[in-house]
Structures are given as structure tokens and as C-alpha cells.
């Protein structure tokens, strides 16, 4: 049998598009877990929340899901600062983040999921927009717009965040708080305020990632769990808090997953991320671009 080259190229392209989307899902974790050392395992739940908000406004008002996600950014930002405030006062200040902080975020993840199930049920929900059903074709190459649009938005998001972190004062302060909190406070910047801003930004990215998710696939409340393994695998593999590393790792995982599901069947795809995570943890826990 001839090796299906065309199939392979299609799988590769699909993997790159998928990986770009994974980068948008992971940047939030890269900021909260990678830079701030806050193990926010509830992040996927915020992403699903973003998906459902995009769904409601798309159904009721016919708004474009990406437009919705930009409109609700302030809301997610304040939600983030609220969560950080509770986390800081209850756990970080008391030095209890290891055990109880984790349990707190796990509780948040669970409560969000159950509330969404109670309100919306377990049916799959999807959004409607002009570009979702169209596909660009170049001879044998298929480029479905429902993958291309999230890829482009995601690239803009990652690039924008990288510029923000490396060029602006606040962004540099965020990078500094990861390295030496005491030194930052000696420079008259409040580390807690900087951390709160950074965490709020990380939650705000969940609004955009959520909208992208519901463009790519129909969403039900427990979908978020599949992403926990993926986002942490990407974050660790990318080197904890390095956005370029996150992007590379995301593309890598996207390609491997896409090839796995093309040649072995989609039901095996969730196992790929875990394999990635385990191998990374066992071989090189500091990741590709780790410090």
C-alpha cells in the first residue's frame, strides 16, 4: 500500500491549526501556573464558562462568538481578581496553598461544572456564525474555517501577551514577581497587586479560549476535564511560563494528536497528552525552553 502522503500533509496542517488553538487555551495556565506558581486547575472550567456565555449571547442576540468574548473580557478580568483575592487571603497569606489551595481550585472546577449541568443539562451546545461551515480547498488540502479563525485569533492573543509581558512596565513587573517578590517590593511595586493583575489577565484569556473552543467543537459541561491534561502537559513541556515555549509545545501536541487520531482513531487522542506529560516529567521536567 502506498503511504498516504496527502493524508499525512492534511493531518499535519490540521495539527498545526489545532495546536494554535491549544496555545490560546494554555496561555492562561502559563501565566497563573508557570509565572505566578498558582496551580489553577479550575482554568478549564473558566474556559467552559466562556463557551457557554458565547453560546447564550450567540443564540439570543446572534452576536459573533469572538465579538462576545471580547465584550465579556472585563467581566472575566474582575472574576479573576475576585478569585485571586479569595485565594490570597485564605491560602497564600497563610502559607497553605499546597494542599488546601489545590483543593479550593478543584472545588471551584467541580462546582462550575455541576452548576452548568444544572442550568444547561448535558446536551452538546454549539454556536452559529457565517464562517463556521465554510472550507477553503487547495487541490487536496482542506482548510476548514472553523479551525483557521481560532488559529489566527489565538496567534494574535499569544503575540499580544508576549509583547505586553516584555515591553510594558506592568508586564515586566509580572515577570519580575515570578523571579523575586522581595526585590519587586523594594522597587515600590506591590507584588500582591501585580499578581492580582496577572491572575486576572490569565482568567480573561479563558473568555477568548472559550469562544474559540465552541467554534471548533460542540461543548458540554464536562468537556473541560479533557483539557486539564492537555494544558498542563503543554505548560510543563513549554517550560513553565515561557510563552514562546508554550506556543511550540502546543503546536507539537496538536500535530501529534492530529496524526494519532487520523491514523489510529480519535478515541485515542486524549491519551496522547498524558503520555507527553509523563515523558516530560520523567525526562526533562524543566521543559523545552525552561529556565
Amino acid at each position: 500500500m502506498d503511504f498516504p502522503v496527502e493524508l499525512l500533509i492534511n493531518a499535519l496542517i490540521a495539527g498545526i491549526l489545532l495546536g494554535g488553538f491549544y496555545a490560546a487555551v494554555t496561555v492562561g495556565i502559563s501565566i497563573s501556573f508557570g509565572i505566578l506558581d498558582i496551580v489553577n486547575i479550575a482554568h478549564p472550567a473558566f474556559i467552559i464558562l466562556g463557551s457557554y456565555i458565547a453560546y447564550i449571547l450567540n443564540q439570543r442576540l446572534g452576536l459573533d462568538p469572538i465579538l462576545v468574548s471580547i465584550l465579556v473580557l472585563p467581566f472575566f478580568y474582575y472574576l479573576g481578581s475576585l478569585v485571586y483575592q479569595v485565594y490570597y487571603l485564605s491560602f497564600e497569606k497563610r502559607g497553605q496553598e499546597a494542599l488546601r489551595g489545590l483543593a479550593f481550585f478543584f472545588g471551584l472546577l467541580f462546582v462550575t461544572e455541576v452548576v452548568l449541568i444544572l442550568v444547561f443539562g448535558v446536551d452538546y451546545r454549539y454556536v452559529q456564525a457565517g464562517y463556521i461551515d465554510t472550507t477553503l480547498r487547495f487541490s487536496f488540502l482542506d482548510l476548514p474555517m472553523r479551525m483557521v479563525v481560532p488559529f489566527v485569533i489565538s496567534m494574535i492573543l499569544v503575540l499580544g501577551l508576549q509583547l505586553f509581558l516584555s515591553k510594558t512596565f506592568t508586564g515586566r513587573a509580572i515577570m519580575a514577581v515570578a523571579q523575586d517578590q522581595l526585590a519587586l517590593s523594594l522597587m515600590a511595586a506591590d507584588p500582591i497587586r501585580i499578581k492580582r493583575i496577572a491572575f486576572s489577565i490569565s482568567i480573561a484569556t479563558a473568555a477568548i479560549a472559550g469562544a474559540l473552543l465552541i467554534i471548533i467543537q460542540p461543548v458540554e459541561p464536562s468537556v473541560g476535564r479533557e483539557y486539564i491534561g492537555r494544558v498542563f502537559a503543554i505548560c510543563v513541556l513549554g517550560g513553565m511560563g515561557s510563552l514562546p515555549g508554550t506556543l511550540i509545545a502546543a503546536l507539537l501536541l496538536g500535530i501529534v494528536e492530529s496524526i494519532t487520531s487520523t491514523f489510529y482513531g480519535p478515541s485515542w487522542a486524549p491519551a496522547v497528552a498524558f503520555g507527553f506529560l509523563l515523558i516530560t516529567l520523567a525526562v526533562r521536567p524543566s521543559g523545552i525552553l525552561g529556565r
Binding site: V39, I41, A98, L102, R225, E226, I228, G229, F232, A233, V236, S267, W268, P270, A271, A273, F274, G275, L277, L278, L281, A282, P285
Partner: peptide
């Protein structure tokens, strides 16, 4: 054995992912 040599957080994340993977294996 794979994850406990690292910080405790990694063990927690690995167990979270373990559930998803074992479920994938059983489903298949």
C-alpha cells in the same frame, strides 16, 4: 515513581491526567 521525585504539584496534576488516560484505555 514517575512523578514523586518532582514537586508535589506535578504529582497532583499527573493523577488528574491519569484518570483521563485510564478511562481512554478502558473505553478502547
Amino acid at each position: 515513581y514517575l512523578t514523586l521525585r518532582l514537586r508535589g504539584v506535578f504529582f497532583a496534576i499527573a493523577t488528574l491526567a491519569l484518570a483521563v488516560v485510564l478511562q481512554t484505555l478502558i473505553v478502547n
